[in-house]
Simulated assay, not measured.
Amino acid sequence: MALSMDKMWKEFILVCAVLDAVFGASLFHCHEGSTCHLETTSFEFLSKFTQKQYRTIVSLTMSNASINKVDPKLKYLKNLQYLDLSHNNVQISSIPSLTNLKILRLNGNNLKFINLTALPQNIETLDISHNLLGQIPRDWRSLKSLKTLHLFKNPVDCDCNNVLNYERLIKSGIVVPESITCHSPKKICWKRHRCC
Rank of each mutant, 00 (worst) to 15 (best):
L3E: 15
D6A: 12
D6H: 06
D6Y: 09
W9H: 10
W9M: 13
K10V: 08
F12Q: 06
I13A: 13
V15M: 12
V15K: 09
C16Y: 00
V18S: 15
L19Y: 00
L19S: 02
V22C: 08
F23W: 06
F23S: 11
G24C: 07
A25Q: 00
L27F: 00
F28H: 07
C30D: 03
E32I: 08
S34R: 11
C36G: 12
L38V: 05
L38N: 00
E39L: 02
T41R: 04
T41S: 09
S47Q: 09
F49D: 05
T50N: 05
T50D: 09
Y54S: 13
Y54F: 14
R55V: 11
T56G: 11
V58P: 04
S59P: 02
T61N: 09
M62E: 10
S63W: 01
S63H: 08
A65H: 08
S66G: 11
K69S: 14
V70D: 02
D71L: 01
L74A: 01
K75I: 12
Y76G: 07
L77P: 00
N79S: 13
L80A: 01
L83N: 02
D84F: 02
L85M: 07
L85Q: 05
S86N: 07
S86T: 04
S93Y: 02
S94W: 06
I95Y: 01
S97N: 14
S97Y: 10
N100Y: 10
N100A: 11
K102P: 03
K102A: 09
L104R: 01
L106K: 05
L106V: 13
N107W: 08
N110A: 15
K112F: 12
I114Y: 06
I114T: 09
N115I: 06
N115M: 08
T117N: 11
A118T: 03
L119P: 08
P120S: 12
P120I: 09
Q121E: 12
I123L: 07
I123R: 00
E124Q: 11
S129K: 05
H130K: 11
H130G: 01
N131S: 10
L132Y: 07
G134A: 02
Q135E: 10
I136F: 06
I136Q: 05
R138K: 15
D139Y: 04
D139E: 12
W140S: 11
S142P: 05
S142W: 05
S142N: 12
L143Y: 03
K144T: 15
K144F: 10
L146W: 06
L149S: 01
F152T: 08
K153I: 10
N154P: 01
N154L: 03
P155N: 01
P155R: 00
D157M: 07
C158K: 06
C160N: 05
C160I: 10
C160D: 14
N161R: 12
L164T: 13
R168T: 14
R168W: 04
L169H: 09
L169R: 07
I170C: 08
I170K: 11
S172M: 12
G173L: 05
I174K: 01
E178A: 12
E178C: 08
S179H: 06
I180K: 00
T181A: 10
T181H: 07
K187M: 07
K187F: 03
K187G: 03
I188N: 03
C189A: 04
W190H: 06
K191E: 15
H193W: 04
R194P: 04
C195P: 04
C196L: 13
